[in-house]
């Protein structure tokens, strides 16, 4: 009895989470143009996506921004995490608190404030502003993730490595880096997905000359949900899923 309650509870949760996604994915293969009625399997919409140069450009732009900003955020965030974990400096607590507040602040507030910053500084919105904005909102996640990892390991292992004859760079390469790698990878992946699907902040800071996919989809949806959008979302979902699986695999491999 108890078991059945458990199973039905779990399936309800999963249905709730993945049901909408499933509907979207199924309808991306629907032949019908406007109705939400099933009219037979077809790959038409995927084919038409490939011919849509605007969408492809936006997609490439999105990937570029996500890749560069997540890499930059990971590098900077990892260094920041070390600074907080290992060094003493004035205002350290305040700094860490500010990191959290950036993470918590509503996207709309961040979007508007970044926009005002760029306007005040006289920078034209475009790739650069988008990149800076994405790095900014990804950075706290990396810092928090990597910091938790560094704080979680015994600092004496660094002494132990030095004691056994390791020089500074060897301590880092052989001990510290492998130990924090899972958190760095997780931070990088999280940043990548955060950047890839951000709408609100990007809406404020990008310019007309540089379109990215989420914003493109957003404007397409204004005219109604087309099967083309369904197909696009399916591709995005599969991509994200693949990234998660790859990272999971990488982390597991390291643990062995």
């Amino acid at each position: 009895m108890k078991r059945w309650i458990g199973i039905s509870w779990v399936s309800t949760v999963f249905a709730f989470l993945y049901g909408p996604l499933l509907v979207l994915m199924v309808f991306s293969f629907n032949q019908a143009r406007y109705t939400s009625e099933w009219q037979g399997f077809s790959l038409t919409w995927y084919a038409s996506l490939l011919e849509n140069q605007y969408l492809l450009d936006a997609f490439v732009n999105s990937l570029t921004v996500a890749f560069v900003s997540s890499l930059a955020a990971t590098a900077m965030g990892t260094l920041g995490a070390f600074a907080i974990a290992w060094y003493r400096f004035a205002g350290k607590k305040l700094f860490f608190g500010l990191v959290y507040s950036v993470m918590m602040s509503p996207d709309i507030v961040m979007g508007i404030s970044l926009l005002m910053l760029f306007v005040t500084a006289g920078i034209h919105p475009g790739f650069f502003t988008l990149l800076v904005a994405h790095i900014t909102f990804c950075l706290p996640f990396v810092i928090v993730l990597v910091h938790a990892r560094i704080a979680g390991f015994d600092p004496a292992v660094v002494d132990a490595a030095r004691d056994l004859g390791a020089r500074e760079h060897e301590v880092f390469l052989k001990i510290v880096f492998p130990m924090i790698l899972p958190a760095v990878l997780a931070g990088w992946l999280l940043s990548f997905t955060l950047s890839l699907d951000d709408v609100i902040i990007s809406f404020f800071v990008t310019g007309p000359g540089f379109e990215i996919l989420p914003l493109k989809i957003y404007s397409m949806v204004k005219l109604g949900v087309t099967p083309e959008v369904n197909a696009l979302c399916t591709i995005l979902f599969v991509l994200t899923l693949a990234a998660v699986l790859v990272a999971h695999f990488l982390i597991k491999e390291k643990k062995k």
């Binding site: 015994d154 030095r162 004691d163």
Partner: peptide, 20 residues
């Protein structure tokens, strides 16, 4: 002389084994 060049080794209180 830095620790890495001394002919001395330590057993740490927390053991400090490399967990990975």
């Amino acid at each position: 002389l830095p620790a890495c060049d001394r002919d001395v080794n330590t057993v740490f209180q927390s053991y400090a084994l490399f967990p990975h």
